[in-house]
Amino acid sequence: MTGLLDVPLTPAHLRGAVEVERTPRGGLLPHRLPAWARTRLPDPQLLMVEAQPSGVRLALRTAATVLELETRATKRVYVGMPPRPDGVYEVVVGGEVVASGSVGGGDVLTVDLGAGTMTPSDGGTGVVRFAGLPGGPGGTGGVRDLEVWLPHDEQTELVALRADAPVEAAPPDGRRRWLHHGSSISHGSNAATPTGTWPAVAAALADVDLLNLGFGGSALLDPSTARTMRDLPADVISVKLGINLVNLDLMRLRALGPAVHGFLDVLRDGHPTTPLLVVSSIYCGIHEETPGPSVPDAEAAREGRLRFVAAGDPAEVAQGRLTLEVVREQLAAVVAQRSVDDPHLAYLDGTVLYGVADAERLPLPDGLHPDAATHRLIGERFAAAAFGVGGPLA
């Protein structure tokens, strides 16, 4: 728009990304796994979700009251399901959300859950505009630090930034770095906004700098994820494990304990004394006593709704099939064994964050993922349990 300044975007403007790719089209694409890890994990689901910028935000220092951000979004369309809402961008000043908006259009990824396919198609760019942003305190010329949080569940290539005043990258704010890894719930599935995912809620309450490696459908004890976390700076670390191991029917009991030990061993190679919290799954009724895999509910699909059911046989738990109850028991045992020699390691039962009583009051809409209100509840409880006085990450 006439009168706005072009701001050359660089990786220095971004927080919450592990790596930033300069695309062939000249934009910036935030990644939450480095390129070497992506080559070792060529799963289409993981490659899709690691490029969705959950927890990634532009960190800017400026007096601007008008910002225009041009992006190329990748929207997901599920065959037979209603259209998904556009991803949300939020401007945060002084810890408060002061503006929000969305970008229409963009590329489209058509997902057929029944066939297990993902089909991309190209689209154009779009612009989200924020006007009337609050200025800085008196005596500073209106300059203040602000963040623009990117959509947590929509791949976002940054094309251009324009403003009505000069913009520079905000300097580090000195907060402790919280490195977190988890499943789609940690990624933010069914949260309404990027600051409304439970890790973002917890980070705001605890006043820590979030680096969110929550990957939808992909908290699978992958060695490359552990190596990535090993090599990243962190003041506190948490890993939330369980649901994807069960709902993908990934492994059997014999493999689980050694795989968890191996994941934690790699983390400790790079962070030998960093406070490390192992968190099990929140309550999920379909998989508490029934193994995976999770499959779409055919009856709900006929009604245009997405809901999941457990397709495993509870009788096969005796032969080593995993349920959430089994995984929680194993995680607690691994942490109990290791904590004898590792005083900085702790365990948190995920049902403390969301349990049976909560499920009766705030049921998971699709059988797997919490809604926006439940994300906030989980974030508040995690902040108190993990970062509160006497907590393992305090």
Rank of each mutant, 00 (worst) to 15 (best):
residue 62 T to V: 09
residue 144 R to C: 04
residue 113 L to G: 02
residue 53 P to H: 06
residue 100 S to W: 12
residue 205 L to T: 10
residue 44 P to I: 04
residue 186 S to M: 14
residue 43 D to G: 07
residue 393 L to E: 06
residue 97 V to K: 04
residue 136 G to R: 02
residue 260 V to Q: 02
residue 137 P to W: 04
residue 93 V to D: 14
residue 83 P to L: 12
residue 358 D to F: 02
residue 134 P to S: 02
residue 185 I to Q: 05
residue 118 M to K: 09
residue 155 Q to H: 10
residue 219 A to K: 08
residue 8 P to V: 09
residue 121 S to D: 01
residue 23 T to Y: 02
residue 230 R to E: 15
residue 152 H to F: 06
residue 246 V to R: 03
residue 265 D to T: 10
residue 374 T to A: 14
residue 42 P to R: 03
residue 8 P to F: 05
residue 385 A to Q: 12
residue 124 G to E: 06
residue 16 G to Q: 03
residue 343 P to W: 00
residue 115 A to F: 09
residue 68 E to C: 01
residue 87 G to W: 08
residue 274 T to M: 07
residue 32 R to I: 01
residue 250 L to Y: 14
residue 141 G to I: 09
residue 18 V to K: 11
residue 370 P to E: 09
residue 33 L to E: 03
residue 384 A to V: 15
residue 78 Y to W: 14
residue 101 G to N: 05
residue 392 P to K: 06
residue 37 A to F: 05
residue 71 T to V: 15
residue 160 A to S: 14
residue 276 L to K: 07
residue 252 R to C: 03
residue 230 R to G: 13
residue 128 V to Y: 03
residue 203 A to H: 00
residue 66 V to N: 08
residue 46 L to K: 03
residue 34 P to G: 09
residue 266 V to T: 13
residue 42 P to M: 02
residue 142 G to A: 04
residue 173 D to T: 13
residue 60 L to P: 10
residue 63 A to Q: 08
residue 289 E to N: 15
residue 27 G to N: 00
residue 257 G to S: 15
residue 106 G to M: 05
residue 378 I to P: 00
residue 179 L to W: 00
residue 193 T to M: 12
residue 226 A to P: 07
residue 221 L to Y: 10
residue 373 A to I: 09
residue 354 Y to Q: 08
residue 292 G to E: 06
residue 74 T to E: 15
residue 151 P to T: 10
residue 305 R to F: 12
residue 174 G to N: 04
residue 155 Q to W: 08
residue 111 V to Q: 09
residue 79 V to W: 08
residue 346 A to W: 02
residue 79 V to T: 15
residue 160 A to K: 08
residue 169 A to N: 09
residue 69 L to Q: 07
residue 66 V to E: 15
residue 327 V to D: 14
residue 262 G to T: 07
residue 131 A to T: 11
residue 259 A to K: 13
residue 302 R to F: 11
residue 39 T to P: 00
residue 105 G to L: 02
residue 43 D to H: 12
residue 297 D to T: 10
residue 195 T to M: 01
residue 289 E to Q: 15
residue 69 L to D: 04
residue 142 G to L: 00
residue 7 V to R: 01
residue 225 T to H: 14
residue 167 V to K: 05
residue 49 V to R: 05
residue 218 S to M: 13
residue 249 D to T: 03
residue 284 C to S: 14
residue 205 L to M: 12
residue 370 P to H: 05
